[in-house]
Write a protein that binds this DNA or RNA. Sequence first.
DNA 1: AGGAACAAGTGTATTTTTGACACTAAATAA
DNA 2: TTATTTAGTGTCAAAAATACACTTGTTCCT
Lengths: 256, 256
Amino acid sequence: MQLGSSVNPHVSTDCVIFGFSDETLRLLLIKRNIPNKVTELDDTHFALPGDLVRDDEDLDTAANRVLSELTGLKGIYLEQYHSFGDPLRVTKMKDRAWLESVRQNPEARVITVAYMALIDARKAQLQPGSFSKEAVWIPIHEVPELAFDHNEIFEKALRALKEKVQIHPVGFELLPEKFTMSQLQSLYETILERDLDKRNFRRKMLNSGVLIPLSEKQIGVSNKPARFYMFNRELFQPRDQRIVNLKMDGSFTLFN
Amino acid sequence: MQLGSSVNPHVSTDCVIFGFSDETLRLLLIKRNIPNKVTELDDTHFALPGDLVRDDEDLDTAANRVLSELTGLKGIYLEQYHSFGDPLRVTKMKDRAWLESVRQNPEARVITVAYMALIDARKAQLQPGSFSKEAVWIPIHEVPELAFDHNEIFEKALRALKEKVQIHPVGFELLPEKFTMSQLQSLYETILERDLDKRNFRRKMLNSGVLIPLSEKQIGVSNKPARFYMFNRELFQPRDQRIVNLKMDGSFTLFN
DNA sequence: AGGAACAAGTGTATTTTTGACACTAAATAA
DNA sequence: TTATTTAGTGTCAAAAATACACTTGTTCCT
């Protein structure tokens, strides 16, 4: 054991943090400093935000800590979706260099518990943490090569998100508290990567009862102002098994 | 570090193994021996089968190892569904006693990666492993108090299974290779805990294309012999996102 | 041999949900 | 005042879901 250490060298948590802005789904990544022993220059690579889980900490707590340290936000939608533990995760040179600069025991095998977070990107006040020099929102289709197996972790999150939004109404977490029907539709179109029919989308959403229409409307737009809606959280807090309709042949009947 | 140890003291895997027999969904549990230092008698408690993850082992590999050591089966349907890491998991006296009898470092905090397995109970040749003196199938509604947080782990698996069967065709894994429509319906009724309409169920299953009707029929039954079917695995191997229809209001349109 | 018992297997009509589709309304900008 | 832009609305046809009851084929019993 690493006596006196307050972290567990064997378990970490990584957060795939999704945000939505400018009609684009984005991933929050950190840039890590890597002291390069050869060139004496700092090299840099991208990684998912994450940290070792402390010995006295629940997994959810650890993920929430990572999330709130980075974004300044609490009470964010956060869901554990998979754990990764390939003993050969650390193969890239940069990863080795970084571990050596940061860990007491860089050879230790690490299992990582991955979480998916959905946040309103505009609410986040990015505060690069101790390990990172910068945090950036990157469109999900422009994600570069990441540290360790983080690309795999991210891609699994993306698939999980796609499936999730069709089964549980969580898309709202990516929008501001008040949003228009078009914003909501645009979000779903982005996540599902297909076009949805405006009238059918609207009917379905309204019939489902998850939306609370507000009297407030947009102001200052140079077109007919859109009504704002809120997500009806009450409906979905008590139960954890909300389901939406989908089809066995792989197609979905939720929208369109 | 526990030098020389081939196991990772910080990560374990637990398997929630479901079986189906006599119209009942069952859970496979092991009985553990606990040397009781006070009475000098062996005490016993039930637990989910599980083991520490070895340092050179992938998580899936570890779970498969636990599963095959216990049941003698390989290639079983096995899915990771959640990891549990409450640092206060070990509060029961029996758990402490057992850990002390078995672990080099009984105080170490353990994170467990939980897997759900679905097997044809009749195929399993139960071989109690090194830590257990017996393995038993217990109806899911008669599960006793279990070690550690295993009750919570089991209940989460049950909820996950319920949701899973409505989205992906995995129920077949619990049946023999050849099964009748009634067996299949009975399985779904058991898992979903509600009655399904025979004709609608039949139509839906047949239209979905997941069943291959065989010419073989039951023999020796004192009623009209039922046709056997097989699950069409080909359909579902390539994609990992098969979905079935369900509804937003919490009701399901899969059956009935 | 005949009948009882038992689970398998089958069809239809009604209701609900989906999917496709095009114009009007309200605001600002020019 | 006119052009531009996005919001917002309804209907019809097709597909899917639901509710529902009788006949069939086998063994068991007498």
